[in-house]
Computed example of a mutant assay.
Amino acid sequence: MLSSTSNIKRALRAELRERRRTRTSTERQSDTTAFTANLVSLVGSTGAKRVACYLSGQNEPNTRPFLNWALANDVEVLLPISREDGLLDWAHGDGETETEGPHGMPEVVGEPLGPIAINDVDLVIIPAAAIDRGGMRMGWGRGYFDKTLGSMQKCPPVYAVIYDDELLDSVPREVHDQPVNGVVTPSRILTF
């Protein structure tokens, strides 16, 4: 039986998923340019040389232009691969080769480096459904990033990539949910 918090999350996720689905191609293009500029700025301001990021799905903020920039500018990027045990493995990508993961999300094709490879990055960039003004993250419900962040020995700054209207006053929270240090939206970089 689902808790009331789980039900609230499920309803909010459905609303956010629909908002993303109905964004126009013009909005997406403009937002992608802005996301890329802000992600590049975040890497510059943190001095990150090794970054963990994700491959964006169809309706997610597009990370590919940023990943291409990182590849061209000698920023090492680790990309996640979903494992059956609920953890994330990490691999380097070539910027082009992808496959579909177990939940329909794009994943890098590369030699798995193991779940602890993320412990050596300078910056973590993750997806989210919404973030509240205190930095609490609501993901899409599979728990991969919560488990990863919760198990890290020393966690570098973690930033979620969301649209401006996904920064909310509050999000429903469960025990396993992990906060982030900031968000990157098309209009700004916000550090909590």
Rank of each mutant, 00 (worst) to 15 (best):
E27F: 04
R64T: 11
D31W: 09
T33D: 05
L71S: 05
L12R: 04
A72H: 13
N7S: 11
R50Y: 07
L71N: 04
S3A: 07
A37H: 13
A70S: 15
N73Q: 06
L67Y: 04
R64D: 15
V75H: 13
N7Q: 14
R21W: 06
V51I: 03
P61L: 08
T63N: 11
K9W: 12
S4Q: 10
R17Q: 10
T26R: 07
E27V: 05
S56F: 05
T32R: 09
T33L: 14
L42Q: 13
V40L: 05
R17E: 12
F35E: 03
T22V: 11
V75N: 11
V40T: 10
A34W: 00
N68W: 00
A72V: 07
P61F: 14
G44D: 06
T36K: 00
E27L: 05
V43W: 03
G47K: 02
A48Q: 00
R50L: 06
E15H: 03
S25F: 08
L67A: 07
N59D: 13
E60Q: 13
V51E: 01
L2V: 04
A52D: 03
W69E: 12
L42P: 13
E18K: 12
T36G: 00
R23Q: 09
K49R: 15
L71Q: 06
I8L: 02
N73V: 04
L39R: 01
V75A: 12
I8T: 02
R20K: 10
L16C: 02
W69L: 08
L12K: 04
K49D: 05
A34G: 02
L39S: 04
N62P: 12
T24D: 10
R28P: 08
S4V: 10
S3L: 10
Q29T: 12
E18D: 09
Y54L: 01
V51R: 00
S41A: 15
T46H: 10
S30R: 02
Y54C: 00
A48V: 01
P65N: 10
V43T: 13
T32C: 07
F35V: 02
S3I: 08
D74Y: 09
R20M: 06
E60A: 08
R64P: 13
S41Q: 13
L55Y: 06
S3T: 14
S3V: 12
S4K: 11
